[in-house]
């Protein structure tokens, strides 16, 4: 079953074509890699899917329903979470508060209910423990190391139980041991039913984690297939991996 369908998506910034008729389809329960050289439009595709920027043409459907034109918070509410290229957390909130911000409680109830409910706190602490960072729960986000921020960002985005998470360079800027741990966490969450679309430059990480890979080049899909197929695709080798 297709969870996310991106259909002929395009985006221009002035005279620059960032995304050019990009189409891709993500299966429920999959981990899909989105790779390509710098400037190929990967992060722009993320921003288009999650509603951070408006598309020029094309459509994005999540579980069969068009989500084009919705704002980022509405899209998150439908079940699509995302992380950013450089780990973004709330620096003046504690790690625990960072975990509680994504908890969905809307309308008047949000205004009048307390910020920290015990069941939500318990769940947040469980998530932090699963990421091995429960010991920083009371520390301000700004005081955490970059690796801890990466883990906190991933843990926090899971708080609203999204079905699909878009990870923008989850292994970027962290040491090899942590890269391995992040990979394990992604696999564990995937076993629990969460689908992933990830942008990453660390090829061993992508090839070891993803069942499906989509290669972007100059904003358009150059190739897609299994890691083995992508490795052997001459066009990809020419455009990105080098021969």
């Amino acid at each position: 079953m297709s969870l996310l369908e991106v259909d002929a998506l395009s985006k221009h910034f002035g005279g620059v074509t960032a995304v050019d008729g990009c189409s891709l389809s993500l299966q429920l329960g999959s981990i899909t890699g989105l790779i390509g050289p710098n400037g190929s439009g990967k992060t722009t595709v993320f921003n288009l899917i999650t509603g951070f920027i408006a598309r020029d043409t094309g459509d994005v459907r999540f579980k069969g329903e068009s989500i084009t034109g919705l704002g980022p918070n509405r899209i998150y509410g439908l079940g699509i979470g995302r992380t950013f290229q450089l780990a973004r957390i709330f620096p003046r909130l504690t790690a625990l508060e960072n975990m509680l911000v994504p908890v969905r409680r809307s309308g008047v109830r949000a205004l009048f209910s307390r910020g920290q409910w015990h069941d939500e706190k318990d769940r947040a602490m469980e998530m932090l423990a699963a990421m091995d960072i429960s010991h920083v729960a009371g520390l301000l986000g700004g005081s955490l190391s970059y690796g801890q921020r990466k883990l906190l960002e991933l843990a926090a985005v899971m708080m609203a139980r999204p079905q699909l998470v878009l990870l923008d360079e989850p292994a970027g800027g962290v040491n090899p041991a942590l890269v391995e741990r992040i990979g394990e966490h992604i696999l564990e969450l995937n076993r629990q039913g969460v689908s992933f679309l990830l942008v990453e430059h660390n090829m061993p990480f992508v090839m070891g984690l993803c069942q499906q890979i989509v290669v972007l080049h100059r904003g358009a899909v150059l190739a897609e297939g299994t890691p083995a197929e992508i490795r052997g695709n001459p066009a990809v080798l020419d455009a990105y991996l080098g021969s």
Partner: peptide, 24 residues
Amino acid sequence: RSKFGLGLLAIRDDEDKALAVGVP
């Protein structure tokens, strides 16, 4: 001390990030 207040503080820290985690 409300959920709403936590959302406001999140906006203060990083509005785009707050949007990305569902804060209207």
